[in-house]
């Protein structure tokens, strides 16, 4: 459900900007999706492609980039990736703690949002 809402927001944003710029065509849209958002890129792409027939974005190329989760440790100032660990049953799980000093109260700095990085339009 939540992918359809994000897809609609992406379309609305692209159309608003294309309109404001007086675009003839939208060539390319670059979208960044944080890995901690749970958003399925394939589903978003499917919903967008379903909705844009007959618009100036009909032939646009939709490029999705996945943004990995990032954390910051207030104790030792570690800033970087979320590491994973293996459980007894050999499942790999993300670890929301500092990989350097073990601090459990970390801050999530990246990966919880999604945004349009760039809209490339042809105006003439």
């Amino acid at each position: 459900m939540h992918e359809t809402a994000i897809a609609q927001s992406i379309i609305d944003t692209v159309m608003t900007h294309a309109d404001k710029a007086g675009a003839k065509h939208v060539d390319k849209v670059e979208i960044e999706i944080g890995e901690l958002t749970f958003l399925g890129i394939d589903q978003i792409r499917f919903w967008i492609e379903n909705q844009i027939a007959g618009t100036v974005a009909e032939k646009a190329e939709w490029i999705f980039h996945s943004v990995p989760g990032g954390i910051r440790c207030p104790a030792c100032q570690y800033e970087g990736d979320i590491k994973t660990a293996e459980t007894e049953d050999h499942f790999r799980l993300p670890v929301f703690a500092c990989p350097e000093c073990g601090q459990a109260n970390i801050e999530i700095t990246q990966g919880r949002d999604a945004w349009i990085k760039a809209i490339h339009v042809e105006i003439d």
Binding site: T13, D27, T37, W115, A118, I119, H120, V121, I123
Partner: peptide
């Protein structure tokens, strides 16, 4: 930011507002 390319035919618009923001 809006950037006009060299030949003046294409525009790059960077809204960059997070959908969850």
């Amino acid at each position: 930011k809006t950037i006009l390319t060299g030949d003046g035919r294409t525009l790059s618009i960077t809204p960059q507002t997070g959908f969850f923001k």
